[in-house]
Design a protein around this nucleic acid. Structure first.
Lengths: 135, 135
DNA sequence: TTATAATGATACTAAAATAGTATCATTAAA
DNA sequence: TTTAATGATACTATTTTAGTATCATTATAA
């Protein structure tokens, strides 16, 4: 099946929405276990995802007791394209390979041109889907 | 890497463009070997792809000497969405799974809503990319 | 009528991406 | 100094993508 969001991206977005909500209500760190209870995601996997978001500066993290995660910036400045980029690489539909080598027609190919502009449109739309717009 | 077209779809489109051109010039069947020479695609693979296109009624085929393939319809009526559907399944970005089971929030999920409308837009744009528009 | 040149059907292997788990190290607070 | 949290990292399983090989069937032409 064709998909734009893989499971990692999907789960990460769900978790971010939850963290955003909780952090707004009470000003505090949200732990992995809270998210697991609320969203029923696999714990080990979620930990890995949140660690990646933390490395990518989307989340702040605190170790030790009272530790956890919180958004590192305004939810209006976190968008789906960013999250996809972290887990799936940049939103770019043009691969243009011929037997694992770059296709010689890259420059002139009309298919490429059309797919490229579609790709740019999709990315710009995904950038408009912010965490704030989902909450 | 993220991709909208897999290799199969990509190669199939290239082959269709070639068949369209040749068939226009001379009214005849185009063989796999001609396409392989012109486009440098792996023969065994191309055969499999053309057979699939033939099964899906995009191509007519003729067996035996003087056999080969030709477009089964007006190139203005063959579009990229059709070809994607054959090799990758329908253009639909919403998968909505939670641990391989349907996500319980399908109905109300805001992410889904946005991705669905984006998915529909992409499909409609891909339907506009016809074989004729690429030739 | 038979050799040949074409596609049809199908089975198979390899590599890469996706999906998911487990464990030890580090750290901050009570 | 115990405990509750994340950090780093290594590992396995499944699915999708990528690619090959072979025998069966059929239409034409010599």
């Amino acid at each position: 099946m064709m998909k734009l969001l893989t499971r990692d991206t999907d789960y990460a977005v769900r978790a971010l929405i939850f963290i955003g909500k909780e952090a707004k209500r009470e000003n505090r760190m949200v732990t992995v276990d809270e998210i697991v209870r609320a969203l029923k995601l696999p714990r080990a996997l979620l930990r890995k995802l949140l660690q990646a978001l933390s490395k990518s500066k989307i989340l702040n993290s605190g170790k030790g007791k009272r530790g956890g995660f919180s958004l590192s910036k305004d939810p209006r400045k976190i968008n789906i394209s960013d999250i996809i980029t972290i887990f799936q690489g940049p939103v770019d539909f043009t691969n243009c390979l011929l037997r694992n080598a770059p296709c010689p027609n890259r420059k002139i190919c009309r298919v490429r041109k059309k797919i490229l502009s579609l790709s740019r449109y999709v990315d710009s739309e995904l950038k408009k889907i912010t965490l704030a717009s989902l909450t």
